[in-house]
Design a protein around this nucleic acid. Sequence first.
DNA 1: GATGAATGAGGATTCATTCAT
DNA 2: CATGAATGAATCCTCATTCAT
Lengths: 189, 189, 189, 189
Amino acid sequence: MVDAVVEAAARILETRGLGGFNTNAVAERAGISVGSLYQYFPSKEAVVAALSVRERALLAAEVAAAAQSAASLSLEDALHRLAGAAIRRQLARPALARILDFEEQRLALEESDRATTRDIAGHVVALLRAHGAVLTVADLEKAAFDVIAIARALIDAAAGRGAVEPTALEGRIVRAALGYLTGLSHGAC
Amino acid sequence: MVDAVVEAAARILETRGLGGFNTNAVAERAGISVGSLYQYFPSKEAVVAALSVRERALLAAEVAAAAQSAASLSLEDALHRLAGAAIRRQLARPALARILDFEEQRLALEESDRATTRDIAGHVVALLRAHGAVLTVADLEKAAFDVIAIARALIDAAAGRGAVEPTALEGRIVRAALGYLTGLSHGAC
Amino acid sequence: MVDAVVEAAARILETRGLGGFNTNAVAERAGISVGSLYQYFPSKEAVVAALSVRERALLAAEVAAAAQSAASLSLEDALHRLAGAAIRRQLARPALARILDFEEQRLALEESDRATTRDIAGHVVALLRAHGAVLTVADLEKAAFDVIAIARALIDAAAGRGAVEPTALEGRIVRAALGYLTGLSHGAC
Amino acid sequence: MVDAVVEAAARILETRGLGGFNTNAVAERAGISVGSLYQYFPSKEAVVAALSVRERALLAAEVAAAAQSAASLSLEDALHRLAGAAIRRQLARPALARILDFEEQRLALEESDRATTRDIAGHVVALLRAHGAVLTVADLEKAAFDVIAIARALIDAAAGRGAVEPTALEGRIVRAALGYLTGLSHGAC
DNA sequence: GATGAATGAGGATTCATTCAT
DNA sequence: CATGAATGAATCCTCATTCAT
């Protein structure tokens, strides 16, 4: 039920955008009544928040798997794995990803919900540290978030242009990320 | 008058976000009546579109100036100039920039309005070509847009974190951009 | 079960007022499900009606006891007893009393439910008659209801002001009642 | 316009009661759209508050006139005048008066709106003082409010019974009030 | 009987847009 | 042209009531 609403919300956001997103539409798409929707979510915002959490969790899972499989690889190869994971997720539903990226800032998610965001960054941080980045923790996190931002931007741009070749896109992301990381410290490359 | 409305719209978007953006608020902030607003803009969307055009034009101007001053520099130094221009613009009103980036996609701007966007990319394209990038026109434009996307993403991320050191940020953008461009063709580096 | 619902209704009315009174809240407070509530009460109104009946019955009982103990007293002393009884009841739950006074009019209680109201008036009528009031039955009832209205008004006013001294309040009620009764007929005083 | 809404609100309250009172109904009765209603009143509550203020002001005016004309009369005759004024007002729209009496408590009126209530009490206070009541200010106000409460209660009760003889009602109110005031201090009688 | 999820009409409020002045 | 009152569709959310389990 909760899942049905969240998925309906995703579909409405994808097809009608933020402006066309309203609880009646979501309920109808989910095949339930508005009243039922409000039995599971305290507000319209809560629905978007739940969707956001779900999407982030999916991304986090994909990234976690990629990070595990990349444990013993070079930085470049590891970044390829992570980029591939991000691409798979973000491209699965590009319009949705774009809207959620925008809304998340406004959503003031619970601390627990921010956890998955931190998770994702954590994998990148671990990766950087494993490859000898000599940075303070704060700098590492900043670098991780920046790399993620770069990946997101390039994926969004590619999605916006239409047909995407995942492999080529992956290459571009990794090059940009490596470029970014170069010089942060000698160890990072 | 048109300017007053557009600037009022900017301020409302900055302070209240997309959700708090409405024509009455804009008119009041602009010191005119709603009726007058509708004499100059056919719809609410048109106001946002005009604002978007204005902001892009400002960016384009700044980028054009930077490009001119960078005509005889190395790719890296030239990118520094462009990045600096983008940072100055985007950081001038970061919240506004973020919202417009999001809305522009939905806005279906007139072809004439897209021109400035193309202008900005044009400078990057020219830069790439000047430094020996051996790419088709389509690839060049794609690369230009990607570089712009990277810059935007890193600036937004920095703005989101709070205090920004423009110089360090500029360095990060240039490194990522150079990384991205590396390998697109041997000529690009 | 019925009692639990009625008491829950009382509590909700006291804490949230008429506007916050709803069947779900009542059921929850009563520790049962809404469905069960509707097994014992045909409608929301019926719950309020039952509460009203209960409260009136409590008042009637208190008044009946007072009347009995006042059988051989002077009119003034007897009125003191009745006033004391009313004060004890009304002040026990002043907010509730006020709301029920208001709602009872709208509730169109069953004839059987009006019985207790008539009971209360009956004691006052008996008292008046016992002390020589020479009035028609209709006038006696009218006088009784008016005296009750006076008592209610003064108790509500006192409750509204906050801290109440029951003895002083009792005195005020009796004086007003005696004043009212004076001249209704010579016999009444 | 504001007046039309307020009067429409009065009519809706009279005919449908608190439960049937909604902004759409009020707007329709006023012959305007809901939107217009909200241009003049910030909320549904504000409409009721405005109505309450209006009704109180009418009562205050009537009481003020009565008080003036009663300046040189005996306490009893003066009370007759005041009671007559209250009766004329309260009986003009008894159902409305009852509902407003109930709602006013919940309404948390502005201090300025409470002024008229204080005005009305002020006339009674002045009356009491003029006739030698030896009471503290606080006690005087309390007495005034109690007398008003008694008048209201008896008028409501009479209205609830149906046909009303204003003169007889006036007599009952005055007797009750005098009874109440008797003994508050020797001077009061 | 008890449950409580589901329903959906109802109601408060907002806001894009119009148009008479 | 400027104004801003008027409009009313749209949207969020509530809650009395039902009914399948």
